[in-house]
Amino acid sequence: MEEADDFRNWKELLPDLQGEIFTYLSLQERLTTVPCVCKSWASTLAGPYCWQEIDIEEWCNQNEPDKIDRMLVMLIKRSSGSLRKLTVSCVQTEKTFTFIAENAGSLQTLRVSRCNMTDSIVEDLTQKLSMLSFLDVSYCNKIGAPALETIGKNCTMLEVFCRNMHPIETSGKPFDDDEAIVISSTMPNLKHLGIAYNLVKTEGVVRILSNCPKLELLDLRGCWGVNIENISLEKDFPNVKVLGPHVIDYYEKNGWDDFSESSGYLGWDFMVDEYYDDDDESDISDDIWDDEEGLEEIQFTFYQGIGNAEMFWRPSP
């Protein structure tokens, strides 16, 4: 590499910046390449600074549960109590959740989708994690209204809550408002709520809209029990953007032309990201986005990791 000489004085880079740069690397790069370079790189990396935000969702999807447990324990130890944001999936064992609860009390954002949590694990977890403002428990099939209730009671600062379900899990089951009632009665500070493919009914949605006055975004895609025409959104809840229930509505309304470029569920993920990008830039230009950490990276994604999800794209049940 010809330019190598120009880089000689990179040693003078401020340690803070060095640590900041490492946070932009992939997990593998951070754990294999960086510590091998030299002792000072290794010590920068070993410090908590590089591990205040941990996102290993992708890695989790490729690895066995025991490896996931081992990795989580290792990384959370490194964060030394300064962990702000944790994104994982497929965590299976109770003792790992206990470890998170005991060692990550500073968490503000927690995304634990597709995890094997029970109502009682959620209760233990949220008792310790009362600082959470962003919680994603999508596709956690074992939990229900009781878990949501403890979340609402313990995490009083919760502003973003994701409880999206996979269509396979909810299709054919009777509609009921249990979760919606709990959400509406225990999470009054919500700004964003994602309950795609939830079994909620129209009444449940009205309760949520009425009891969560700060709500800006409600994702109801695939909630076939909701008859949105029966709610006068514009009149009664003018500040809330509602997505769904009909999945197709979204891109028709917004004239998404480039959809053909990407296919299947990946395309959908991309669209949702776009939606939020636009949001950031236009409607909500106020300082709320700068002031409140965590809100800026909101995404509600669908069918992640499920290859044949296209078949569920139909807008009607």
């Binding site: 190598a4 370079v37 790189w41």
Partner: peptide, 11 residues
């Protein structure tokens, strides 16, 4: 990476 950043291997 070492060469690129002019880092000397001290291991």
């Amino acid at each position: 990476v070492r060469k690129f950043f002019g880092v000397v291997n001290d291991y």
